[in-house]
Nucleic acid binder design. Structure first.
Length: 274
DNA sequence: ACAATTACCTGTATGC
DNA sequence: TGCATACAGGTAATTG
């Protein structure tokens, strides 16, 4: 599931693979994935345009275009955005194709269509729900330990639910919430307000460590995720709790517990996470 | 102001 | 073999 590390990996791939290459043509094959404008208009804007850079905000990928427009992509659950240098047969659920100079194609594929694309006319992002109210970037160098502790002051609610809330902090989804909390040795069932200073600092440190390591590994590929070149990531091999319910805790050897929080399956170690 | 639930989707795995 | 059901968990809207 594309969370911050997966989107960041795609961003890096695309920055290297498609920046500066002219878009020869664009075809929207399923209009539903184009969210805030007419598909024909999007095709028109992209044609003869080119990406000058790619940015990321939380789980959103922002493609800066030469025209000044910004193409915003959210991969949802099963979305894939990748370049094929020598176009092969279209995979099912390919909803948008950008043909690049030289014959390569940038394709958006999404089985469940929870993902989608938006076009912004300016640099501001208030038109996209979610982007406007998004919390701080967990890897922002400016988000120091001190800032983080102060930021959490006065906030409460189920800890894992809050980590999944993009308004608190950007880019964390179900996989990394569980992995981060395990690394912290803190139970997902705790209330955010109950964390003492040491625990808040641990959360800051482990959140940044896990996300950074996952990016270094190219993200987690469970079922659908591939990077901007169509390749799977490697961090799924280093998951210590996600998808391991009932298996032995890598620290204490006891079977990992499962529960549901905010409607999401949650795996944790009752012994190691307090 | 928060939490829980549901809708949106479809492929995959399971049970009978 | 078929069919029904549960599950995956991204965001947004709704309800409590």
């Amino acid at each position: 599931m594309p969370e911050l590390p997966e989107v960041e990996t795609v961003r890096r791939c695309l920055a290297a693979a498609v920046c500066g290459r002219r878009i020869v043509s664009c075809e929207v094959r399923h209009p539903d994935v184009v969210r805030n404008l007419e598909p024909a208009l999007l095709e028109e804007v992209l044609r003869n345009n080119r990406f000058t850079g790619f940015r990321r905000r939380g789980k959103y990928l922002l493609g800066d275009l030469e025209s000044g427009h910004v193409l915003v992509v959210h991969l949802g659950m099963t979305g894939r955005l990748f370049v094929v240098e020598t176009p092969c047969e279209l995979a099912p659920h390919t909803h948008l194709i950008m043909e690049l100079e030289g014959g390569a194609e940038l394709r958006f594929q999404d089985v469940r269509r929870f993902g989608g694309l938006y076009l912004l006319t300016g640099p501001l992002d208030h038109s996209i729900p979610g982007l406007a109210a998004m919390g701080p970037e967990p890897l922002d160098p400016g988000l120091t330990e001190e800032h983080w502790c102060r930021y959490l002051e006065g906030r409460r609610g189920n800890l894992k639910a809050r980590l999944l809330d993009q308004r608190l902090v950007a880019g964390i989804g179900n996989i990394y919430a569980d992995e981060i909390l395990f690394a912290c040795g803190i139970s997902p069932q705790r209330d955010l307000a109950s964390l003492n200073r040491v625990e808040r600092i641990r959360l800051h440190r482990q959140m940044r460590r896990i996300l950074t390591e996952a990016i270094d590994d190219g993200g987690s590929s469970i079922r659908d995720y591939v990077d901007g070149r169509g390749q799977p990531g490697g961090f799924q091999n280093r998951h210590r709790v996600y998808g391991r319910k009932g298996q032995a805790c890598t620290v204490c050897g006891r079977p990992l517990s499962g529960c549901r929080i905010s409607g999401r399956s949650t795996v944790f170690c009752e012994h190691c996470q307090r």
